[in-house]
Simulated scan of single mutants.
Amino acid sequence: MDYIHLKDMQFYGYHGVLAAETTLGQRFRANVSLAVDMTKAGETDDLSYTVNYAEVYALCRDIVEGEPFKLIEALVVKIANVILATYPDKVKGVRVELIKPDPPIHGYYKEVSVEVTRGDF
């Protein structure tokens, strides 16, 4: 299987359980990997045989910067499901990691993240 990776995409959203998260919002980072067969795209140099990663970026941006979710688990599942539904004939599997670099948690840590994998990966 071949893979397309979109790494360290950055967005601003209003997801979370705490009032501060839904009022002030916060930064989110996302990593997305798509399992695709790039054989035909590689042979033809034709974008129509692969997935346009600019479209995937816009899709992720619209979801993360759109309707608020309480749980990033729900948000990351939404991203994965929409990608699979948008490219049913091209994307065989998807892995999505959503990172909260600054959650309102007291303590010392770099970040928290949630990751889901769907389909053939």
Rank of each mutant, 00 (worst) to 15 (best):
M1P: 00
D2I: 09
Y3P: 02
I4W: 05
L6K: 02
L6C: 07
D8W: 00
D8A: 15
M9I: 03
Q10A: 14
G13Y: 02
G13L: 11
Y14V: 05
H15E: 02
G16C: 03
G16D: 01
V17L: 07
V17H: 12
L18V: 04
L18C: 09
E21F: 09
T22F: 12
T22A: 09
T23Q: 11
L24T: 06
Q26V: 02
R27A: 13
F28D: 00
R29F: 09
A30D: 12
L34H: 07
A35R: 12
V36T: 00
V36E: 04
V36Y: 05
D37I: 06
M38S: 15
T39C: 03
K40Y: 08
A41G: 03
A41H: 08
A41M: 02
G42K: 08
T44Q: 10
D45C: 08
D46S: 05
D46F: 07
D46Y: 08
L47S: 06
T50G: 10
V51C: 06
V51W: 02
N52R: 06
Y53E: 06
E55H: 08
E55T: 03
E55G: 05
Y57T: 05
A58P: 10
A58T: 13
A58V: 02
L59H: 07
C60F: 02
R61C: 05
D62E: 09
I63Q: 03
V64S: 01
G66Q: 00
E67K: 15
P68L: 10
P68I: 07
F69V: 09
F69N: 07
K70T: 03
K70G: 06
L71E: 11
L71C: 06
L71H: 11
E73M: 10
E73H: 12
A74P: 01
A74Q: 02
A74W: 01
L75R: 12
V77E: 15
K78Q: 13
I79L: 00
I79W: 03
A80P: 09
N81V: 11
V82G: 05
V82E: 12
I83M: 09
L84R: 03
L84F: 00
A85T: 08
Y87H: 00
P88Q: 00
P88D: 06
D89N: 04
K90R: 09
V91H: 10
K92V: 07
G93L: 11
R95M: 13
E97T: 15
E97P: 00
L98V: 15
I99H: 05
K100I: 03
P103Q: 04
H106I: 15
H106M: 13
G107R: 15
Y109W: 10
Y109E: 08
Y109D: 11
K110F: 10
K110E: 13
K110C: 04
E111N: 12
E111Q: 14
V112K: 10
V112F: 05
V114H: 07
E115K: 15
T117N: 14
R118W: 06
R118Y: 13
R118T: 12
G119A: 11
F121P: 01
